[in-house]
Design a protein around this nucleic acid. Sequence first.
RNA 1: GGCCCCGUGGUCAAGCGGUUAAGACAUCGCCCUUUCACGGCGGUAACAGGAGUUCGAUUCUCCUCGGGGUCACCA
Length: 481
Amino acid sequence: MDTVRTRFAPSPTGFMHLGNLRSGLYAYLQAKHNDGVFILRIEDTDQARYVEGAVDVIYRILKDIGLDWDEGPDIGGDFGPYVQSERKSMYLPYAEELVKKGKAYYCFCTKEELEERKAEAEKEGKVWKYDKRCASIPYEEAKKRVEAGEPYVIRQNVPETGEASFDDVLYGHIQVNCADLEDMILIKADGMPTYNFANVIDDHTMGITHVMRGNEYLASTPKYNLLYEAFGWEKPVYIHLSQIMKDAHRKLSKRYGDAYYEDFLAKGYLKEAILNYVALLGWNPGDEREFFTLPELVEAFSIEGLSKSPAIFDNDKLNWMNGEYIRRLSPEDFTSHARPFYAAAGIGHMDESILCRILQQRLQYFGEIPAMVDFLTQLPDYDAELFTNKKSKTNPEVAREVLGMVIPFLESLPDWAENTVHDALMNLAAEKGLKNGTLLWPVRIALAGKQVTPGGAIEIALLLGREESMKRLRAGREKLA
RNA sequence: GGCCCCGUGGUCAAGCGGUUAAGACAUCGCCCUUUCACGGCGGUAACAGGAGUUCGAUUCUCCUCGGGGUCACCA
């Protein structure tokens, strides 16, 4: 069997859309699972959309998550160049070959003329499709006009009758009537190929065996196949991928936020978790496993497991999965990921091992840290009713007594070490015949001023330090006086 | 609107003619407990609808409905 060659062909927009990332992942997995070659190609035929530095963004993200390519713009390969704008001169001869074969033609209609005719058609309630006006210009005449420097584009000459079709591994045989197809532009007035044309030429000349791309191309692929047939080229295996949706109606997109890989990284999601979650959106391994490293995905991947229907991106499930990944981190790794968020929360000076202990079990993503620990830097203005808790058998009166005995007791401690504080409080509760909760609830409330906190009274006391803790306990007692 | 695709719980998703229709997330309840979280146990919840094929349809076919995609000198 021939070597499997797949490609990921993003446009340099400056961002990595998750749907795009998933397409790249699947292309990578398909190649690697079959000991094949994964190629990175940059599709920058739209000069108007050129974004400075966007290609580097693509490199950086792919490298970061481990989708290493075997051939690409930066590392070369036998089928280069791998940037479409650098291949510009390759496309025209192919298009001209098609013109000679009658499968394409020069078109001199200007954008303005087209607009006009389109508007007219719409006024009559008709659906506009290019009217093939220039298809009837004799080749010699067209050639002369081209040589005279008249601006032109090259259009595919789609038959007016018959069918165009292709076979997709997932979706099966897709067939459309040629009459419904427009004579799409192959070469633009600026000499650049359109995506439609560049893709066919590049996939063929780069020896791509499996074309994996979003299924927004499903409807136009029959047109591409017409091109393959016109050239007499062997067609690749087509695998169109289902869409990732924001909800039942909307695609995941910038407009609705959270469409980009970078957004999730910035919020403190782990790249391994994002990749894992995205891999499972639209693909299942055929068993019950849910956690995969990239090598495990390579091992398990099969196009059989790909699903045809669109998948709604479920942030809740990503949160859960990311939380699982966070819990599996070593304390050192946890801390190094958390540190920037500690700084943002103003708790960079606090005991990292205690922070790790109280936060690692609670976080779904690191960005939750500041809101979760806000009370550490600033005691909230809380209501005395917070001291009421049925299960712990406390209320403001009980709390007043408890704080009354706890404060002098803590003041007398020799130091503020964890076991000192812990043992002292536990012994005090036992000595007074109180439930642990009855003693600790008021202490925690006074320390945090919040009903729900990560960590318990003792951990909070340690994080705050002796001085601040005593200050807050006294303030709590004042409140109850 | 034309054409193309899709349709199992709220979400992801097994199933590929005969199942008590898995599992995960979410949700609810209980347990654990120093609040919350983590963890453990359990519950609620689905084959879009209608014809047909068949001894038997979630599974095959058709129609309806619902949703999406596409109709650019964007990809």
